[in-house]
Amino acid sequence: MLNSLGIAKPPAETRVVVAMSGGVDSSVVAALLKEEGYDVVGITLQLYDFGAALRKGACCAGQDIYDAATVAERIGIPHYVLDYESRFKEQVIEEFADSYARGETPIPCVRCNQTVKFRDLLATARDLGADALATGHYVQRHLGPDGPELLRGADAARDQSYFLFATTPEQLAYLRFPLGHLSKLETRDLAQRYGLSVHDKPDSQDICFVPDGDYAAIVKRLRPEAVEPGEIVDLAGRVVGQHQGVIHYTIGQRRGLGLGAEVSGGEPLFVIRLEPNRRRVIVGPRAALGRDRVHVKEVNWLGAPGVTEAACTVKLRSAQAPIPATLVRQADGSGTLTLTAPQHGIAPGQAAVFYDGERVLGGGWITATELSDLEVAA
């Protein structure tokens, strides 16, 4: 007989490691599983320097580690803090800086889930003899005909599936998401019922390792060449302004260009593409942003085995509603999405996440885009 986590053991004989970030979600997961009688072990990751991390709106910071320890003591489970700072710097922060230097718009939270949390922490959980690793993400895991499937969270406003597209089938077999069927309000109500001090703690905001949202300062320190000044050029090649580094711009950006109305003839200008090797920012009208073909790399496939072409919907940004597309996957891990209608502001470095209804089919990293009737990719 299977327990509530789908494991053929009594809860008392089932060890579950809970990734405790110090926030309300993972704290409720630990308390919920403890109440159900599981052998729960809490683990919190120290990902970067305490001094730089003692601020509100962060995660895996000094205050968060204290909060996680307080919750663990309250519910009576062992709690360990693991120093993953060097791994986090190498696998997340350095990659973040490199991505911006390449003219991309990175998503470090996905890389963190992909590497530090769902690879390294998962291995540690296995070393501790755990039967599963549980997190507070708002996604759902169901068993399908080919094994575990990843689905969007029941609360569309809290769904985090976009950020977990890189979860592999092997990892999904080991992971559990006990909050996937709940809303945030229901989670906070549970935290109050369990008497957890974090029941009204604000959600983490922005990128955890970027103080005050100033990501450019991080990139400047790690990759100073990425903030060299250069030219802002229109689609005809005419220099219309100067910039202080391509890292300050992203595809589709309108605000902060510093260009007067005389440059655009009164028409709003947008960032059309970035050329970091030439230190150029290319601007043009909104119509020039339209793209209906999206190339991706490092595709992680969670759909039926062997499928290389699929009709799907795709999210090209975390806050975007899924749009219809056709995906063709290649053996080298790359793929091409053909959209049913052009979209504006698709940025390399972001993720393209594929869905079949509520099910996550996988995703990949956007490398380039084009408009199907143009010969030159943007």
Rank of each mutant, 00 (worst) to 15 (best):
G6D: 10
T14A: 06
A19R: 04
S21T: 10
V29K: 11
C59M: 12
C60S: 15
G76C: 07
G76T: 13
Y80V: 11
D83R: 12
R87Q: 11
K89S: 06
E90M: 06
E90R: 15
I93A: 06
V116R: 07
L128D: 08
A132I: 12
T135G: 12
T135Y: 01
P145H: 08
D146Q: 12
G153E: 05
D155T: 07
A156S: 13
A156T: 13
Y162P: 01
F165K: 07
L172A: 09
A173C: 01
Y174P: 00
G180I: 01
D189Y: 05
H199D: 08
H199Y: 14
S204N: 13
P211Y: 04
D212K: 14
G213T: 12
A216Y: 05
V219C: 01
E225W: 08
I232F: 05
V240E: 07
G245Q: 10
G245C: 06
V246Y: 00
I247F: 00
H248L: 06
T250E: 06
E267G: 02
P268C: 04
L274Y: 10
V283P: 08
E298G: 11
P305C: 04
V314G: 03
Q320C: 06
A321R: 15
P322D: 05
T326V: 12
L327C: 03
L327Q: 01
V328Q: 07
G333S: 02
G335E: 10
G335T: 08
L337I: 07
A341P: 05
V360A: 02
V360Y: 00
L361N: 02
T367P: 00
A368D: 13
L371K: 15
